[in-house]
Design a protein around this nucleic acid. Structure first.
Lengths: 260, 260
DNA sequence: CGCGTTTTTGAAACCGGTCAAACTCGGTGG
DNA sequence: CCACCGAGTTTGACCGGTTTCAAAAACGCG
């Protein structure tokens, strides 16, 4: 392997720190200048405060966003006032793909805590994906992953009990935190019980009861927003008993290299 | 407008008849030879019989498929034997996008009746999307639509009652049949009560009861697989009462031209 | 015609939702 | 410094929609 490859990887790591989207390029070994070109179109906005919106339902779609730190909640507002959470986005994850089809966002996205995002203007990204073939493939993969993730959630919401849903949710968070370099067993929930419930199709009281139940069972230690997972295996058991198919669908983060 | 444009549209219609994917190009006005190139990579396989698989869970991903006629069901098999339906695909709709990310399909797809599909080898499609910029955008739109559709279903499964789910399902079928040139008020269900229930997260008995209930209410006429919608408005009412947000999410088939 | 599959219908059990009240915590202002 | 307030959470009791179990009926197919 020539020296340029090493330099390229070094560049990549820097770019990766700047913007989670660059992670996409890693399996691909893009050329030096390609990475710079990707990096160049990324806009780094100032951090969002709790409650700030990235975009709202119906607003014009122009960019996709990569979470650098913090948490983004995407949700829809029903006419009767209640909101329905459709996703939580952790560092490294992408928000806003829903708007591509119609040119308008079909849901709103707001920060649950102080959050930094990278804005990637979509038209400029498309120019780039057209000229960098590997990048196009990565975009397809990214969107395919989003589809798989939602399919998994569908299965969860369609078949599972409240217990299974919360277990799956906690494991999903655990896996995702881990893959982004945080602890997989101890973390803070940035969302409320109500928001978890909305996401999982449960009443907030049910979520609360389940947390205390898991604590009584010594599966978790719960202190308000702080979660410590004591027995991951028992959480997994709760899923695999009924819905083994979830493991496949729910955790698309065991990213193996494609076509290999 | 020059003559070539007219010829182009003529070609398009032919291509459209051959393969639903070509529909994607319509809003774009692709050049003559571009359409031919798209058309050239499409493989037309012989019709599938009821029960035949297009692909199965874990099999290598190589192509996406466009339904020409009939119905495809995509589903996952849980280890305890029960299956979970994750989608029904009508003529004009695409199957197999889930496999792009990992290179393996995460669900199985089989024909519910005699069904014809076009096979589009993905690597060749990618070559084409890289050289035909408009086609790339259409692919992004297609995948974005898939994401929106699943988001809508998530909301449906998370919040709604059994009645609302079946109403949404019937309306979704109605809209889709209509947009593909069939009657929007009278059609045959190619799937069983059990499959509908699995898809909507309900027991098959519940689905059956709801059909008789809708019939008693004179909203539907049901004769086994044959459905006649008597009062579309009342079906819509069932949704809008609680979940007005579904209208936006559930029916991404009101395709307006993007960015306009 | 007879068999198996699908659908319908009934009755009982249960999970989770709803309503209501108590409690905790963080923040604010007297 | 503490009393107060409101949002978020916990806990309890009750209710209702769905599931489950069971059996009969309808239909499709050989």
């Amino acid at each position: 392997m020539p020296q340029t490859k090493v330099v390229s990887l070094e560049k990549l790591k820097t770019a990766c720190k700047n913007c989670g989207l660059a992670k996409l390029c890693l399996p691909l070994g893009l050329e030096n200048n390609d990475i710079e070109r990707l990096d160049a179109i990324v806009q780094r906005n100032r951090p969002l405060h709790r409650g700030n919106h990235i975009f709202q339902t119906g607003s014009r779609f122009g960019s996709i966003y990569v979470v650098k730190s913090g948490t983004i909640k995407s949700y829809t507002q029903c006419p009767n006032g209640t909101e329905q959470v459709v996703g939580f986005h952790l560092p490294g994850e992408v928000v806003g793909l829903d708007g591509i089809e119609t040119g308008k966002h079909i849901c709103s996205a707001k920060a649950l805590e102080t959050t930094a995002v990278c804005e990637v203007p979509f038209s400029r990204l498309e120019e780039l994906t057209a000229t960098v073939p590997g990048l196009q493939h990565q975009m397809f993969r990214l969107m395919s992953k989003e589809i798989s993730k939602e399919t998994g959630l569908m299965v969860l919401l369609g078949k599972s009990t409240a217990e299974e849903r919360l277990a799956a949710f906690l494991l999903s968070l655990s896996v995702r935190f881990h893959s982004y370099g945080f602890s997989s067993t101890e973390f803070n929930l940035s969302m409320s019980r109500r928001e978890i419930g909305s996401y999982l199709g449960l009443a907030l009281e049910t979520v609360s009861r389940l947390f205390t139940h898991f604590q009584e069972e010594r599966i978790l230690e719960v202190d308000r927003k702080h979660i410590k997972i004591l027995e991951v295996d028992r959480l997994f058991q709760l899923l695999s008993d009924q819905n083994g198919c979830l493991e496949r669908l729910q955790h698309p983060h065991n990213t193996e290299t494609p076509g290999q």
